[in-house]
Amino acid sequence: MMTINIEKKKKPQSLIIDIFIWFFLIGFAIIILAPLAFMFTASLMPSSDVMRLPYPWIPKTFYWQNFWQAIRGNDGSFIYIRNIINSVIVAVSITLSTVFLAALTGYGLAKFPFKGRNVVFLLIMTTMMIPFEAIMIPLYLIVTSFGWQDSYTGLIVPFLTNAFGVFLMRQYLITFPDEVIDAARIDGASEFGIFWRIIMPNSMPAVATLAILTFRSQWDNLLWPLLVVQSEEMKTIPLYIIKFSSEKYTNEGAMMAVAVIASLPMFILFFTLSKYFLSGSAVFSSRKG
């Protein structure tokens, strides 16, 4: 087959545009990455260097004391470690339950015709329109009336699943081949067995996308822990950051060390699973169904 060479010689004008675009993209990449570079470099400097004019950018010596102070805390209580563990417990439990319940419901809605199915789907979709900020006060009253304030139960239960997850899983499973499910039924598999051993393992791309979205939004959650947590022991990372930043003896370098520790898990996830991070945002632009 003959290939037509469409790109003839570049005109000087388009070369200028080309160079302009490179400069624009690289310039903004530097501006966008600068605050991140600031976080990492400042975490390794004594505070006298962090606030020096002009900012040195490259740490002269690695000032590890920042990380020691970040973990130890200003009062030597090492409460940050406990707070990190809390964040992990809360985010992991919510992620597991969200994925499980969303997949279960999405499967039920996608593959089981029953009377009122569309109403159920619509009802679940309407909850997407209820912003958390509008129901946080009643939720807080409910959780306190159950005596769940200041506990893992209180932090976890209001987020056990979400409508977006149900939507995502239903859309994904609607195209799942019915023959596979029927074949498993004929082989005598139980309905739950089919879900657990056939549906779940075969929806890994959607599950991974949903898991990352959920984990990240919980790692980021400030408002709800702010309402239900009272003791230092039950605080999560965002609350610790707020407390640490308002303490008198906090220096700038240690503050950035706290920020680096809080961000490391997300960065590790991002660099290993960037595909799912990017597809998570791209879900919005898919216009199916």
């Binding site: 600031f38 990240r216 400030l222 990372i237 707020i242 809080a262």
Partner: peptide, 20 residues
């Protein structure tokens, strides 16, 4: 590169910018 700030939690983002 452009996406990476979205990886941070909003509290961390605000803490960085408070110093900047």
């Amino acid at each position: 590169a452009y996406y990476s700030p979205a990886v941070l939690s909003s509290v961390v983002a605000a803490a960085i910018w408070l110093l900047i």
